[in-house]
Computed example of a mutant assay.
Amino acid sequence: SIKMSFRASVRPEQFLLTGLTQRSNLLCAGLIGLTCTLFGALGAMIMWMVPTCSQFGHIETQACGACAAMQLSSLLHITFVKQNVVPSRAFETRWVHRIVFVVKFLSMITNVCIFAFPTPSVIDAVSGRQFVMLRWVEWVTLSFVMTFVVEAMDSTSLRGPALCAISQLLSTSCGMLMPLAPSLFWWKVIFTTAFVLFGYLFRRLWLKEALLRERRRSLPAGGPPARGPRA
């Protein structure tokens, strides 16, 4: 017997983030709150752990200012223009749009801080490069939320997206800790851990490709039925 296709067996309202359920609304609202809390907590932790603040290089600082200006224009466009345009399935995707808005806003705040103020920075003893720690705060936070959003967009289970998002959260957290490593040994340990955790994305890619092949095989042979001649 022919298996039902994915779209036939799983209704869109069952998806985690775009479903027409109270669970979807609560999950998206909780994700926004968690993202903002994580960003603030990591920022405070870095300010406490790295009290030395310095200004970034001139070119890099100007680049951050330009990025912040472009991000501000994008946020203004979303707020005052795009909200008046009603896309298809607007009700289902409104919370996802809010999550994306928060992501852009936090990224803009990071660029503004690096552009306008001295921020915590560390010179990595192994690579010799300057680490702007506030940028790592942004990466750790947004790698988590964006990975979760991408994975949960067409998922009905919380486990897969959560594991994938946590793996990227931990991977980028290791990257943030690398310049703080007390020795070359621990630097290598942290680097290896970050690399292994990042590899979880490729496992998810393999699983998705395998699932796609399975669903393609479940389609009826010969493609869609031919249409008859028009009258």
Rank of each mutant, 00 (worst) to 15 (best):
M176D: 05
V149K: 11
K188S: 04
A90G: 06
K3Y: 07
S167W: 00
F15I: 10
N111P: 02
S157P: 04
W136P: 00
H58E: 13
L134G: 15
Q71N: 08
R203H: 10
S173K: 07
W206A: 15
A8E: 14
T61M: 10
V96K: 00
H97M: 12
P224N: 04
F115S: 03
V137R: 04
F202T: 12
Q22M: 13
S167Y: 03
A165P: 09
V132W: 03
E209A: 13
G57Q: 10
V96N: 02
L201N: 13
I46P: 10
G199H: 06
I190Y: 04
M178N: 00
I99Y: 09
A226H: 06
G222W: 01
A162G: 12
A226L: 10
P179W: 11
R89M: 08
F144S: 05
V81C: 12
I2Q: 11
A165G: 14
F15A: 05
H58V: 09
L106D: 08
V145Y: 01
G222R: 02
Q14G: 05
A181C: 08
P225V: 15
S24T: 02
S1W: 12
M176T: 03
S74G: 12
A226W: 06
S5G: 13
P118N: 02
A69F: 10
S88P: 06
T93W: 14
W186M: 11
F101D: 05
F198M: 15
